[in-house]
């Protein structure tokens, strides 16, 4: 079957500047943390082989610049993404508030085939710091309201929950990728709008 081919999972990390995107990626891939990371300019990625449900897959994790204006080039990088990781800093409420626009912007630019069911994962980072300002409850509520996005609280510095979070990311990305392959690797065109109708109605009532 086609799904037995070697699988590449493309994961995009988004979030405000300085929430720890580069650190999370490096902690997960290289098991390292440094205080000397520079602000990311443009985009870069790391790859890591992981086993998901007894299958070896390659994760390609994309790290991007956090300042808003640089996102206009995002479309080149977001294309073909299988999962989007939204990161905020648990000590900085603004970075949490901006998750909405990061999510929206991703959906606009990446135009995934099935936006309602595109897998996101939310990471509340820097939980090693004392001055926490966004409660778990608040973060969880937001995630639930967005079609039950999985939520993890992490510390890239101390490696807390990073592996766990990325395992879920890989798993959900793989599910997305597999679904794409089964549907022939192109968007579901709107010849037959029925399947989505109910979903849309639910959304409108929110």
């Amino acid at each position: 079957m086609a799904t037995r081919k070697k699988v590449l999972l493309k994961v995009i990390i988004l979030g405000d500047s300085s929430v720890g995107k580069t650190s999370l990626m490096n902690q997960y891939v290289n098991k390292r943390f440094s205080n000397q990371y520079k602000a990311t300019i443009g985009a870069d990625f790391l790859t890591k082989e992981v086993v998901v449900d007894d299958r070896v897959v390659t994760m390609q994790i994309w790290d991007t610049a956090g300042q808003e204006r640089f996102q206009s080039l995002g479309v080149a990088f977001y294309r073909g993404a299988d999962c989007c990781v939204l990161v905020f800093d648990t000590t900085a409420p603004n970075t949490f508030k901006n998750l909405d626009s990061w999510r929206d912007e991703f959906l606009i630019q990446a135009s995934p085939r099935n936006p309602e069911h595109f897998p996101f994962v939310v990471l509340g980072n820097k939980i090693d710091l004392e001055n926490r300002a966004v409660s778990s409850k608040r973060a969880q509520q937001w995630c639930q309201s967005k079609n039950d996005i999985p939520y993890f609280e992490t510390s890239a510095k101390e490696g807390i929950n990073v592996d766990l979070a990325f395992q879920t990311i890989a798993k959900n990305a793989l599910a997305q990728e597999t679904e794409d392959m089964e549907t022939g690797g192109f968007p579901n065109i709107t010849l037959n709008p029925e399947p989505n109708t109910r979903q849309n109605q639910n959304d409108c009532s929110c």
């Binding site: 294309r79 135009s111 690797g185 192109f186 968007p187 010849l191």
Partner: peptide, 15 residues
């Protein structure tokens, strides 16, 4: 004829 897959430059034209 419907475009169901496009290069990134034509993302607006999809579907």
């Amino acid at each position: 004829v419907i475009l169901t897959r496009v290069p990134a430059s034509h993302i607006n034209e999809i579907n």
